[in-house]
Design a protein around this nucleic acid. Structure first.
Length: 328
DNA sequence: CAACACGACTATCGTAATCC
DNA sequence: GGATTACGATAGTCGTGTTG
C-alpha cells in the first residue's frame, strides 16, 4: 500500500521524455533553470561580519541585538540567559549560529516557535552555503552527530531536518532508525513543509521545492530517497510531492461553488451565446475574401507574413470563424 | 548568422485515485 | 461522498545544436 503509493508518483523521465538522449543529457550541466534565469536579489547578509567579534563584549552586543530583533517579546533576562547558553555551546562568531538546531534551541527556550524562528533566521543568514570561519570548532563537532549528513540549505528557503518542529514524530523516528517514512507521516511532513515555506518565503515557486527535497534526501536517504531511481539524486518523488501539494493548495477550496460562478467552457468560448448577426460593415463575400487572404498568407513563408493584415483580418472575420464553428 | 529543431524543464489544469 | 492527493496532458520558455 505504502510502497505502491510512492512508486505511483515516480514518473520515469524516459517515459515522459521518450526521446531523451545522451547528447541532451550532456548539455544538462550547462543548462540554466528557470529560477536561475530569474534575477533573484542577492542573498545579502544583513548582519555584517565584524572582525574581532570574538571579543566577549562585541559578541554579546551583537547577539543581544540579533536575538531581540528576531524575538522582540523575549525579556532582557531571558535574552542574557540565551546568550550565555549560546556561548556555552561554543558560539564564538556570528556564523557559529548556523550550527544550532531547533532541537538544541528548543531544549533551552522551551518554546518550539521561538526556537524555530531563531533557527530559520540563522539558517537564512548563515546557512551552510557560506564559508565557515570556524570549521572544526568544538561546537561543530558537538553538533555533528545531530545529522547523518548536513542538510543542504537553499538560499531564502528554510532548512528542514529531523529535529525541525515541522517533522512529524513518526518521520523523525524513521530518520533516526534509517527506515522508510510512513505514507501518512510523509504526507504530514510535506504539508507542514509547504505551509512553512509559503509562510516565510515571499514569491515562493514550486521549483524551489526541488532543493528542499534534495536536501532531505541527502540527509536521510534511507527515509526519503526514491526506491526506483529516476535521477541520480533520487529526490524526484519527494520534490514532486511537495510541488503537487503546493499546486493543489492553490486551488479553490469550494470547487462546486466555483463551477456555479464560472461559465461553462462552451459559453466561455461563445459557442452557445454566439450572436449570429453579420456586422453591418460586412457581407458574406467580404468575410470570405478575408478568410481567403489569411489562407493565402499561410501558404507563404513566415518571413513574408504581414502581421498587421493577419491581425486585422482575423479580427474582422470573427463572424465567419464563429459561423464555421457553430454551423449555420 | 538567422532560422529552425529538439530537448529539458516549468506551470497549470482536468480528473482519476485515494483517503477519511 | 466530499476532500485531498497524485497523474498526465498541454502550453510555454530557454538553451543548444544543426542547417541553409
Amino acid at each position: 500500500m505504502e510502497s505502491s503509493q510512492y512508486t505511483k508518483i515516480r514518473i520515469s523521465k524516459e517515459q515522459r521524455y521518450p526521446t531523451l538522449n545522451i547528447k541532451a543529457k550532456r548539455r544538462k550541466g550547462s543548462k540554466q533553470t528557470n529560477e536561475q534565469r530569474q534575477s533573484l536579489p542577492p542573498h545579502g547578509n544583513p548582519f555584517k561580519e565584524v572582525s574581532g567579534l570574538e571579543m566577549d563584549s562585541q559578541l554579546r552586543d551583537f547577539l543581544k541585538g540579533n536575538i531581540q530583533g528576531i524575538l522582540p517579546h523575549l525579556s532582557e533576562e531571558r535574552t542574557e540567559d540565551l546568550i550565555d547558553f549560546l556561548k556555552s555551546k561554543g558560539v564564538k562568531k556570528q556564523r557559529d549560529l548556523r550550527r544550532l538546531t531547533c532541537d538544541v534551541l528548543e531544549g533551552h527556550l522551551n518554546d518550539m516557535v521561538d526556537a524555530c524562528d531563531l533557527f530559520d533566521e540563522w539558517q537564512k543568514v548563515y546557512g551552510e552555503g557560506g564559508p565557515s570561519t570556524s570549521r572544526g570548532s568544538g561546537l561543530q563537532s558537538r553538533l555533528a552527530n545531530n545529522f547523518q549528513q548536513q542538510p543542504v540549505p537553499t538560499p531564502n528557503m528554510p532548512t528542514f531536518d529531523k529535529d525541525s518542529p515541522y517533522m512529524p514524530a513518526s518521520v523523525k523516528e524513521a530518520c533516526i532508525q534509517r527506515k522508510r517514512a510512513s505514507s501518512s507521516g510523509r504526507n504530514q511532513m510535506v504539508e507542514r513543509i509547504v505551509d512553512r515555506c509559503r509562510e516565510v518565503v515571499p514569491g515562493l515557486q514550486r521549483s524551489m521545492f526541488n532543493d528542499v527535497a534534495l536536501s532531505l534526501v541527502l540527509a536521510y536517504p534511507d527515509t526519503f530517497k526514491d526506491t526506483i531511481l529516476v535521477s541520480k539524486h533520487g529526490s524526484d518523488s519527494l520534490a514532486k510531492q511537495l510541488r503537487d501539494k503546493f499546486d493543489n493548495d492553490k486551488r479553490p477550496k469550494n470547487s462546486t461553488q466555483m463551477e456555479k460562478e464560472a461559465p461553462s467552457n462552451k459559453e466561455a468560448y461563445g459557442c452557445i451565446r454566439w450572436n449570429s448577426t453579420l456586422p453591418d460593415s460586412e457581407t458574406e463575400d467580404s468575410q470570405e475574401e478575408k478568410r481567403q487572404s489569411l489562407v493565402d498568407m499561410h501558404m507563404l513563408s513566415k518571413k513574408e507574413w504581414d502581421w498587421k493584415i493577419i491581425k486585422k483580418h482575423s479580427e474582422e472575420s470573427f463572424f465567419l470563424q464563429m459561423k464555421d464553428i457553430n454551423g449555420p
